[in-house]
Design a protein around this nucleic acid. Sequence first.
RNA 1: GGCCCUGUCGUCUAGUCUGGUCUAGGACACGAGCUUUUCAAGCUCGGUACACGGGUUCGAAUCCCGUCGGGGCUGCCA
Length: 513
Amino acid sequence: MTATQKRGVRVRFAPSPTGFLHVGSVRTALFNWIFAKQNSGKFILRIEDTDKERSKPEYEKNILESLKWLGLDWDEGPSPNGAQNNADDTQNNAEKSQRESASSRRKSAYIGDYGPYRQSERIKIYRNYIERLIGEGRAYRCFCSKEQLESDRQTMLAEGLPPKYGGRCRNIKKEDGEKRMKNGEACVIRFVVPETDVEFNDLVRGNVKFSGELMGDMIIAKSEDEPLYNFAATIDDELMEITHVIRAEEHLSNTPKQIFLQQALNFREIKYAHIPLILNPDRSKMSKRYLESSVNDYRSGGYLPEAMLNFLSLLGWHPKEEKEILGIDEIIKEFDIKRVQKAGAVFNIEKLNWINSQYIKKKTNTELAALLRIFLENKNIDAEDEFVAKVAGAEKERVKTIAELAEAAEFFFKLPDYGPELLTWKNRTAAETKNAINESLKMLDEIPEEKFAREEIGNALQQLIEKTGRGEVLWPIRAALSGQKASPDPLEIMGILGKKETERRLKIAMKKL
RNA sequence: GGCCCUGUCGUCUAGUCUGGUCUAGGACACGAGCUUUUCAAGCUCGGUACACGGGUUCGAAUCCCGUCGGGGCUGCCA
């Protein structure tokens, strides 16, 4: 290949819409995105939906939505508007969208000059290359049955040989192949893999070498109109002028296959970077079995996108300095693909929690309130913005996720039921407790409603506290106001709740004693 | 089985290329203490790691060889 002319950096994230976006994929997308930003390149989103059985439109939609939520915007790919979540865009619109998809929607549904960006819409393109390879004798029709192949495999395995396709159909003449196919004989298309070595320099792993001898002729398409992954990806990477392929390590052994294809088709060379896998606690590939693995789960679990990106960037990479909380701009500045780790990284939810809590603490109360609202709605709780913001401010120090924040904040909106024993401080009697609340109530009543704020309240209660004791006064108030044994400072709660609600809750407590 | 990748605290990692400043640094988690009206947060302190075995060298986490461990792939999935 001619490395002489420098090409502008173009990277791609190429997910398969066969499930909700996986956090491992997010990290791959993130590294690509960062790489593009660092090199003033383009970040391309390509949907690899050649598997008709498993690919679903709703998964594609989820991928787009998740990327948008994370802020990983793409320069080329399916139109981001396609990710918009129109409430009525579900059931009864299925018909309509089907009609549209046939014509206008398809053509306009992507941005960029290298489209379409959905492999299912590129079938004709692949078909040309398949015909070309067959024409050049570099690909052929294979009529071997699956049963036959399986028994071949077993035989080779039993003999201790590498289980590869032996090339039984390789010498079938092109014309004979065409004829048999037209007569309805089932066949697939295989690529003649050269029996040579391929070597490439991986940006994270250094030199890697594979032997073509061990591979056997690979299937590149089930038929002219049904290309398979390695083939379609190779064609697209060339046509979309991809310069760097950054992907998970599980694709390392696909790389020689793609390089063989590139060489046969006279495509340009591509630089590869295979990043380590994200692992379960038992060090196997991250999966649902152990951990929530889709972005959805974390989004609905109350994790912030910036925390997710920060955490994921630290899985397999680390900046030079000993700094862990990094905004996306800092990550872009510091990131170096050559510094990424070679070994897999266990997904450590504790660390994610900590990072998330750091980002929560940094948010303003107003920002938090907006996020909190969504979670509150699920609990059928609604209130004024100002109030929600104050509540968020009172609780943000003690939560790790927005979901936890909603949980912790609930009592502000709705006093939970509790037993009278909760009200007593240590071994004080009910009468003492009742008295303390009553005294507090009297002090509180002196404060005019508009001055009912934390500092003022503290002053009002000061004498009583000095006389009776902090715990004796404040504990019953806390319990009465929150209905629980852990909460923010009762003085703060009172300020947020306001005079009327505070008095109401204290009186409820009195009745319980 | 074969091919490929990989191996520093429980976990994420710094250090490895360019041997000494590393009796191995940071972070999360954990434990103790401080603070204290609860729970947190915060602060201080603490324990824990160079997979193993050989070499090379005055000196090895760092270089070489071997062993063992872990993972991925081995699909008419991606």
